[in-house]
Amino acid sequence: MASLSSDLCYDILKRLDGATLASAACTCAAFCSISREERLWENVCCSMWPSTNRDDVKNLISSLGGFKKFYADCFPLIVNKEVPEFHWKDYYEYPQEWTEAEYYGDEDEAESISPSDFVSIVDIRYKDKTICSRVLWGIPNANGFNGWFYNCPFRVDLLAYSAINDDQADEVTVSLSDGLPPIWSMERRGKMERSGKSCAMASGLAGFLLTKKQRKLLIFPVGALLEDKDIGPENDFLLRFGSVLPAKDILPCQVVECILIMKFRVARIEDEDTHTTLKLTELSMQLGDMEGSHVNGRNSLLVLREALSCPRSKNYSEASSRANCTQKFRASSRRRR
C-alpha cells in the first residue's frame, strides 16, 4: 500500500462506506489526512441519504460542522451489540469552532425554541433503492393563532408539505421493478405482511430534527419497527418506526415515542394479480406517550429540546427492547379499556 500515491489512495478511499473510511483513517497518517477531505464524507452521506445532496441541506450541514461530523452523528444503530452509551456532549472534535456559550446553548435561547427551528430530513429506501426523499423546513401550520400548534397533537406531515425537487414524482410508489415480490390475491394478506416487514428492514431511513439556533442536531435513525399491520380497507397497511425519548419532568409517563408512520395502499394490481404497486399515502412523524395518546405541540417541543442534550444510545437492542416494552404496555392498556 505504501507504493500508492495519495491520488490513488483517494481513489480507493472514495469507494468506502463511512465506517470503513473511519477505520482506514486510523491505520496510518497518509490515510488519516486524506480522510479529512470533506468531499469523501459528502459522498458517503449522499449515497446513504440522497436528501443530503440537496443544496439547502448541504448548506445546513456545512454550517453545522460539515459532512464528517454529520455522518458521525447519524451513524445508525447497531444490532445486538453492547456499546457504551454515547453522550451528546462528548463531541469534542470541533470545540475550537464554538465558544462555550454557543456550545452549551444559551439558556434563554433554548427556552424560546420554536417550530421554525426544526428541519426534517427523511430518506426511505426499499432494497437499496431510494423510493422517497423528503425535506421539510419548520413545522407546517405551526404559526396558527391562539397557540393552536401548542395545544394540538404534534404531527409533521412529510408527504403533504415537504418541498420536492422537480425531478421527483408526486407519487411515491413501490412496484415490481423496485423489487417488490409478486403478490397473489389468495395469499395477499400474508405476503403483504412479509413484504411490509422486508420493507421495514430494508429501509435505511433517517429522520432528522435539529435546531438551527443551538447548532445541534437531533437525529432519529430508523429506530425499531413498532408495528406492521393491516388497517381499514383490506388494501392498506401501516408501518410504524420509533425511537424512545425521555420525557422526565415533562409528562407523567416519563418516556415518549417519536414515531415515524408510513401508510401504504395497494394502488394497482395487474397481470393476473401478481404485479402489485404500493403507493405511499402517508409519511408523518408524531410523538406519542406510552398509551399511544398524542403529545401536544408544546410538550413535544419540550421533549425534543430535552432530547438534544440527553445521553444517546447507539445500542439497537436496547432501543428495540425499550420499544417492545412500550408496545407490550400499550397492548395491555388497550385490553384493559
Binding site: 477505520s23 458521525a72 447507539k314
Partner: peptide, 8 residues
Amino acid sequence: YAWAWEGV
C-alpha cells in the same frame, strides 16, 4: 472515530 468501532 469512536463511533465507528462497533460492528466490525
